[in-house]
Design a protein around this nucleic acid. Structure first.
Ligand code: MN
Ligand code: MN
Ligand code: MN
Ligand code: MN
Lengths: 231, 231
DNA sequence: CAAAAGAGTTTGACAAGCCAAACTTGATTG
DNA sequence: CAATCAAGTTTGGCTTGTCAAACTCTTTTG
């Protein structure tokens, strides 16, 4: 029975490992995402090593063991299913569910989670488009390219928001850019590092390529414009 | 932000206060229901006093302050709404939801709880028939007399199970005695301290008056037996 | 390549909760 | 009413998880 703290560490390590070029998590990195001091992290990491959840040489980065990875995926599954529930069933705002899930994920048994999963219809992704690992730790792979890689006139569907900051999520939500949303790339200005989108009937939306790189989308095959209607 | 431990203490004190003749909770009693030592309880109680959640003289019982009572009712509300959710929505067994709720109650924000309440249709009682305090700390009062006080030929509806032990709950469930269930008192044997019930079409069920006193019921006005059907 | 900067580690301290065991108080009762 | 005993309290110790601050590697860079 790992503590809430251990679960959060393992989850943080999982994410850093995935995103870092070296495939490792650093003490400073973990400290920064968990908002605690390096000293505390060092202490916890040596416990995690003793309990075989992570490995790594002294004075260098750490990696999850198989056991550690399994735990991380389990926590992630809980977190994301809870987010789906909060948004779909309880109608909480998209941008405020993360904190809630951060606490609830540590209080939900496997049994309750399985029932919840069934109740929600075995969703594949959470409200931010992040894939939900199945009960065996398999993560459905999702295709999606950063918005910043698209070209003018491309059409697409948002599939995932990579930047989970609540400010950013609110911005994204305000402009209806949530997963499933369709859009057209109206204009790209490489000099200004800017991309402009048309989302639904909303006014044109511009954002920096940097910001756009945190939003993943899937291209829609441009349908041949066969004359389907007349009015 | 009271800790989970504090919330559980306060909840235990609330229940003991209600059930004890003196209207007070004792160190030994709290220790026994929470499964910890008297020493630990003494330590916690002095903290609770310092933070004005309870009061009481040295070497005597404790009572909740207004603040304490408010907190207790809040935790109880969370606990019971969660139990309703687990049973009604996730179809967990009636007798196994208590443990789950015991953990989840500490991880759910007021906001989530309100949404949950609305989603469930503002239920008045939990699956065991215990009343759910509203958001202002008002507890709906329920009438119900111990099964052991009924007379032969009385008909009634179960409204509440007072003994929350999981063995007892399983027994009760096995015999379809959950809240809402209708029954008839078939026979009472004062010498044997026994009461026999007819529940639905199930075989006659006998239990001790002691056990029966943990089940509360509401009498149904005996309907005049007007000949309604012929076959 | 030596010095400074960064990253990681160690140490001592603290708060929350818990336990075991000794101790104190107050209630019961012979 | 004094002995007993249950109930309450105190003390010392332990674990988990955190911080601040000093320390030690490793990496970068002038
Ligand atoms: Mn968490
Ligand atoms: Mn998410
Ligand atoms: Mn609890
Ligand atoms: Mn209940």
């Amino acid at each position: 029975m790992p503590s809430a703290a251990v679960e959060d560490y393992v989850k943080a390590i999982y994410a850093m490992e995935r995103d870092s070029p070296a495939g490792e998590a650093s003490v400073a990195g973990i400290a920064s995402v968990l908002g605690i001091t390096k000293g505390s992290v060092a202490g916890m990491l040596s416990k995690l090593k003793k309990s075989r959840l992570i490995e790594g040489e002294r004075y260098s980065g750490v990696r999850l063991t198989e056991t550690g990875k399994k735990l991380a995926l389990d926590v992630l599954r809980r977190h994301r299913l809870i987010e789906v529930f909060l948004v779909e069933t309880l109608n909480l705002k998209w941008s405020e569910v993360h904190e809630e899930a951060e606490r609830l994920e540590h209080a939900m048994s496997a049994k309750v989670l399985d029932r919840l999963d069934a109740f929600l219809g075995h969703p594949q992704v959470d409200p931010h488009g992040d894939p939900i690992p199945d009960a065996n730790g398999h993560v459905p792979s999702l295709d999606g390219v950063p918005l910043s890689m698209l070209n003018e006139t491309d059409q697409g569907v948002i599939v995932r928001i990579t930047n989970q900051g609540s400010k950013f999520l609110e911005f994204v939500e305000r402009h209806s850019l949530r997963p499933e949303a369709r859009f057209t790339v109206v204009e790209i200005q490489p000099e200004a590092q800017l991309i402009s989108l048309q989302v639904g009937r909303k006014p044109k939306l511009s954002l920096s390529l940097e910001a756009a790189s945190k939003i993943l989308a899937k291209r829609i095959k441009q349908p041949k414009r066969t004359q389907r209607r007349h009015t």
